[in-house]
Design a protein around this nucleic acid. Structure first.
Lengths: 182, 182
DNA sequence: TCATCTATACCGACCGGATGGTACAGTCTT
DNA sequence: AAGACTGTACCATCCGGTCGGTATAGATGA
């Protein structure tokens, strides 16, 4: 194990990964310092050293998720129309491979400390504005945006329509609507 | 207060109302037996007599919410087209007056015990099927359904676009789309 | 070069509070 | 009196957070 540098210094990434793993396996409610420590292979004190409060841990989790979502835009063709909508669509389609359970933590976080969602609120606010600006029909743009969000939540909560197959099907419908509206 | 029958015999309704009040005031995470008992004006033992486990309490809360949602259909004109979609729209518009925080409990419940959402899953599954059957364009019906759901979740989590004003605005757009598609 | 000092990263025992749940005694209604 | 219902005391557990301590790596200085 090449821990000469990485493990010695800063176990934060390992801790976040451990938290995600626990969320995926046992549910977000089971993210506790002890559990995370066990999963990450260090002590509770070590986790608390990196994230002094649970709030900090959850905030870091959320930040990581938003960053991954934003990173998707890089994979889009430079000249694509409706970039923001496309990014959301891509993010939605990537829900299988990526751990959807991390997103799930948003919900748990929201229940406990609503203001932790502020970064997410700002990001979505900007996205919504961009979508309206990019759209030929602002109303249609909004409609599609919320449909994507609805689809996302259904996927997170295992509600009908959120399974990969129907999700992708509606995704294609939406893609056609996007491309036909120039 | 006419407690001669209702309160004396079966405090369940009072308990559920208390739980909703707590959720609205302090958040879903603060629904505990003791807190509910205090709010409902009885003892913890009393609450536990009516709802032997927390799971039972949460399930009852969810059931109550679903019933209220279904009840909205009665207020719709007999001959209305797209009844199911209209009901969802009505439910969404009623989010302000009704306690949205009850719906919020869905999220917390889902985090703790996902299978409690099964009744909701069945209800939404049926709704989705009905919507597709009622729609002239099944794809459009689905799209609108998920947009409504997205809007609902945004409202629950105080995410952008979920505020009453923009919510109602998009609602009207949707209403027009529904009425123009015959 | 070697002793000392300092900062970083981590360990693990412990505390206090909250919570779900139990036990059981009492009360009210019929 | 019996059963439905309520109140009180209590328990076990979990969890977030504190705290004193350890290990190590580099800087400092004579």
């Amino acid at each position: 194990m090449q821990e000469s540098q990485s493990a010695r210094r800063n176990a934060s990434l390992r801790i976040l990964a451990a938290a995600r793993a626990i969320a995926a396996r046992e549910g977000v409610a089971h993210i506790s310092f002890e559990a995370v420590a066990r999963e990450a292979g260090l002590s509770k004190g070590g986790v608390l050293y990196n994230f002094p409060t649970k709030r900090d841990l959850m905030a870091a989790l959320l930040k990581e998720m938003l960053a991954e979502h934003d990173a998707l835009e890089a994979g889009l063709p430079q000249d694509a129309q409706h970039r923001t909508l496309r990014r959301h669509l891509a993010s939605l389609n990537g829900l299988d491979t990526a751990d959807s359970d991390l997103s799930m933590s948003i919900l748990a976080v929201a229940a406990a400390e609503p203001d932790l969602l502020d970064p997410l609120r700002r990001a979505l606010e900007a996205d919504l504005a961009r979508i309206e600006a990019e759209a030929t029909d602002a109303n249609l743009g909004r409609l599609i945006f919320f449909a994507l969000q609805g689809l996302r939540f259904h996927a997170l909560l295992s509600l009908p329509g959120g399974e990969p197959a129907p999700r992708r099907q509606l995704g294609e419908t939406i893609m056609e609507m996007i491309e036909n509206a120039h």
